[in-house]
Design a protein around this nucleic acid. Sequence first.
DNA 1: AAAGCGGGGAA
DNA 2: TTCCCAGCTTT
Length: 353
Amino acid sequence: MPAPALITQTPPDLAGLRAALLDWFARSGRAALPWRRLGEAGARDPYRVWVAEILLQQTQVARGLEYYGRFLSAFPTVEALAAAPEDAVLKAWEGCGYYARARNLRRAAGVVTRQGFPRDYAGWLALPGVGPYTAAAVASLAYGEARAVSDGNVRRVLSRLYAQAAPTDAWVQARADDLLDPARPGDWNEAVMDLGATVCTPKAPRCAGCPLRAFCAAFASGTPAAFPAPKVRAAVRAVRAVAVIVGDAEQAVLERRAGTLLGGLSGLPAEELAAGEAPYAGLARLCARLGAEPGAHLGTVAHAMTHRRVTLEVYAAYSGAPRTPVAGAALSRLDHKALALLAPWQEGLFGPE
DNA sequence: AAAGCGGGGAA
DNA sequence: TTCCCAGCTTT
């Protein structure tokens, strides 16, 4: 059976659709977002746009706002970012997740410092950490290039507009390319994303206030929230691990995490437990590696990540290994939770007094 | 094409 | 709980 071709075509009244959304954007868009501020030349600063786009990858705007100002204060220019130690960049990113973003951003800043800012989509796409979305966003917002962004908001809005329950990435990009207003690509891209974030929301879309209601096949269907269908997600893996605190909340033995998981961050020495392995066995293994003596069980920490559910048994341990100031290190939330187990002891709640 | 990568907000 | 967030890189 052929797909219902009609609803996958560009809407007949394309000009009307564009006008409706851009008019809504002018009245109801999120104009106050700091990365939308114009520079002296009346244009967006590419560096500020770029930092925002990286920060907002898979990160909600409300959270990005918590980091954006601090990050720019710490690294006001691309040269400052390129010259900064990776540790310092990760410290500014601490708690925000997906830390490869910060490392790639710093690495790309080095390229830009040597070669200058890319002038077009292809040039941006070549930088580490910049994919199709980010390249289109910077090219359109800072340079006025007619490139359509495709992100989670765009996917949801277009899935509903065409009542396409299972859109592929290529399908979304093609529809986004069709609809993009080539005269105002930056405004158009932000308008679609704002609509997705504030009106065409995942669970309970506010169709009554939607400027595209008259064009929307999902609204016409009566069940707009059914589009798009939920993505199939990988199962969450339960992980048990043991970690030791050698030192105290101010100074402790920390290790640099290698690999892709929390790579580049510092953290308490830790070992993953094998299936069925007792925590004490892992503690013994960990202490043998560190040349440390095992101490008291300090507590258990539960930590959820997208694809893991971590249960961490935290122990004290003792050795003469050099300790690092905790406050200056970039740590994951998991390590902060583990260190927080020391708080009751420091408060003297369980002490002799 | 699919998996891996953080952490938290909303319903 | 479940789903998703201004995605990218690697396999």
